[in-house]
Design a protein around this nucleic acid. Structure first.
Lengths: 216, 216
DNA sequence: CTCAACCATTATGTATACATAGATCCCGAA
DNA sequence: TTCGGGATCTATGTATACATAATGGTTGAG
């Protein structure tokens, strides 16, 4: 593995997990020493992070982890809506019904059994599988790239919202609906199910915001 | 101006203008000497180009200018539709009617006077103003970034299609419609006008494709 | 006491040197 | 003549050294 890839992966993981919170200055020498690489590959990693929007390079002051707060959540979900609705429409046209019916079945099971917060990560993983399946069925490289860029920011935003078990169960039901709509091959239905889920998700985030963790 | 910025701008211009056609290998030493910079800033430029999707780094063989052909045009317009429709909807809500009515007036004038192919660049510039105005009115940084990334590919695609004066005039009328719809403040109308324009634009590209210039 | 200017320190931007890996070409053997 | 193996060469990946610009602190003057 290239040293620049290693540095990029490590920094990205630290940023998404809030080990490097927004506003952290990413000094080249400091981070190069911490990650055990030279400044050259680290600079390449910083470039990629800036391209992703996870970091912004301030003139002279180096690179800092980009800010993220609930102020941006409306804009972010605006873009998310546009992209995921389009992806769901495309997937409904070309996706394999068997694949999405199977996913729907697993979401149904999750909706019944989800209780402890410990199962949260497993559910996120399942939701990720549906996203990947839709992205794969849509088979649009440009759309896929845009979605990938978006999901990084969404993952970072996740830490700002409570995900109570009740919401997770509701979310599972909505995901099952999306999967079934895609399996049915009806683009309008898939679009509507996605729209509904995103609306509920955004409403939940905005009404259950953590009080004061959006600071830089 | 930083050397890396200079290299990035030059390479991006050459790629979009097809001075570096798809498939061109961007050797680090060769390009560094051509642009009069060292390998270090040139590598940063190549990274940014790869992030933009204008170049792809092949394992071992270095970086080559990414392929573009009419095979991708459907996928590209799928994403374009999703993004620009969303942008038009947002702009209709918050945009200043005066700004967009003025733009509509200029498009009307262009639709009347456009004749020679020499005025083509001027018209593209006007269309760019409308895009910028919509992007500005939408005031969504995430959406704007996605649109910027998309427009580079669209500019590159432009060379694969004939833009006859008749199509330019029709396009001007459609753009005027979009501007008026945004000025009216009706998101649904703005969405519809955008959808219609993109549909016509895509149809024109696919039916007036250049015979065989899509090669790598 | 406060403000401004200058100096020092530090971090970024760039260049070059070195290592390594892969690709191509050539030679030999079947 | 063709296929395979090896060597050489070239390009990428990395590290380090140097230059430059910015920032912060300190000192002096008003």
């Amino acid at each position: 593995m290239k040293a620049s890839d290693k540095a990029y992966a490590a920094l990205r993981r630290d940023i998404v997990s809030w080990a490097l919170p927004p506003g952290s200055v990413l000094g080249e020498v400091e981070q190069a020493e911490r990650l055990g690489v030279s400044r050259t590959p680290l600079r390449e990693a910083l470039s990629r992070l800036a391209a992703d929007g996870l970091a912004v390079s301030q003139r002279g002051r180096g690179v800092v982890v980009s800010d993220v707060s609930l102020d941006h959540v409306d804009d972010l979900f605006s873009l998310r809506r546009a992209l995921e609705v389009e992806a769901a429409r495309s997937a409904a046209r070309t996706g394999s019904p068997a694949v999405f019916n199977e996913l729907a079945r697993r979401f149904d099971a999750a909706a019944r059994t989800l209780s402890a917060a410990a199962e949260r990560d497993g559910y996120y993983s399942l939701a990720g599988e549906l996203d990947a399946a839709i992205e794969d069925a849509a088979s649009n490289a440009y759309l896929a790239q845009a979605l990938q860029g978006l999901r990084v920011h969404l993952a970072r935003l996740r830490r700002l919202s409570h995900d109570a078990p009740a919401r997770l169960r509701a979310s599972a039901r909505e995901h099952a609906q999306i999967a079934r709509a895609v399996a049915s091959g009806d683009p309008g239905l898939a679009s509507a199910a996605t729209l509904l889920h995103l609306h509920n998700s955004l409403e939940h985030i905005k009404s259950h915001a953590l009080p004061k963790e959006a600071s830089a």
